Simulated assay, not measured.
Amino acid sequence: MIIDLSGKTAIVTGSTGGIGLAIASGLANAGAEVIITGRDQARVDAALAQIRETVIQGEVRGVVCDAGTAEGCAALIAAQPQADILINNLGIYGAREFFDIEDALWEEFFQVNIMSGVRLARHYAKGMRERGWGRIQFISSESALNIPAEMVHYGVSKTALQGLSRGLAKVLAGTGVTVNTILPGPTRTEGAIGMMADLAAERGVSVSEMEALFLKENRPSTLLQRFASPEEVANLCVYAASPQASATTGAALRVEGGIVESIA
């Protein structure tokens, strides 16, 4: 299968590292013009340089903004008013005892993990609908289906994305615009590596040993039995953004290594 996104413009939020950066690279290599976003100019510049080292055909440029805020979304929209592909990848996570999650942290997760996607989809979906083609993705998590006890606030925010995505797919039914969620499992991003390193130091084991322990203790149902790479997640995202995925909409697409105990 050859995926050709030439002539398409894609926006990937939270794309200076990790899964977002891998998605941006994959879309650019498929020929799309890709806009990456980040809050820090230096990180945006570094990500652009990294993508340009490997991109074969697509163009890539950056917008510095905090898409986790209304003001940041407005700045992104002003800089790039139209898009054919919107990947709402921006998100935050972190372990916290449920009884220590204060209202302010709940609100922060709501704004960053949910409202960033709401605001951007609300704008860009209109143009996609008018043109009769578009792809919108919300990067969710297996934690949306298996709410982790150590990150209830995170899991709840990702579950909300499932409802948002399905509802928007219904709003855009029959328009040529597809809307899907992507559900990664544990993925070897910079943030995950850092978290594993901290846990490894606490327990006196290596990072690789800590990854295995984390899966055994926290995700014992994994069939993959390892952390995925950002590129493995990005491959599914690129396919879902392609013309070939035209019949896939309103779906929760899992790339979580079989953690979810369901055949549906």
Rank of each mutant, 00 (worst) to 15 (best):
F138Q: 12
V205G: 09
D103C: 04
E107P: 05
D84W: 01
G185Q: 08
I56L: 03
M1C: 12
R96V: 10
A234R: 02
I92H: 02
K216P: 01
A160Y: 00
G194C: 07
V260M: 10
G58W: 00
S116K: 02
A240S: 08
C237P: 00
A144S: 15
G38S: 10
A160D: 12
V255A: 15
I259F: 10
L183H: 15
I77E: 06
G31S: 08
S165R: 04
S116E: 04
L253C: 11
P148M: 05
D45P: 02
A197Y: 00
M128I: 09
S221C: 00
Q57I: 11
A30H: 02
N88W: 06
A173E: 15
T189D: 00
W106K: 08
E190L: 08
K126I: 13
G91H: 06
P243A: 14
Q244L: 14
A125E: 10
V60K: 02
R226E: 11
Q244N: 05
R61Q: 10
T175N: 09
V233F: 06
M196V: 00
S165D: 06
A200R: 05
R129S: 11
G31C: 12
A104Q: 13
G155F: 05
H123L: 03
E97C: 05
V156H: 06
L224H: 13
N235V: 06
Q80T: 13
A78E: 15
P184A: 10
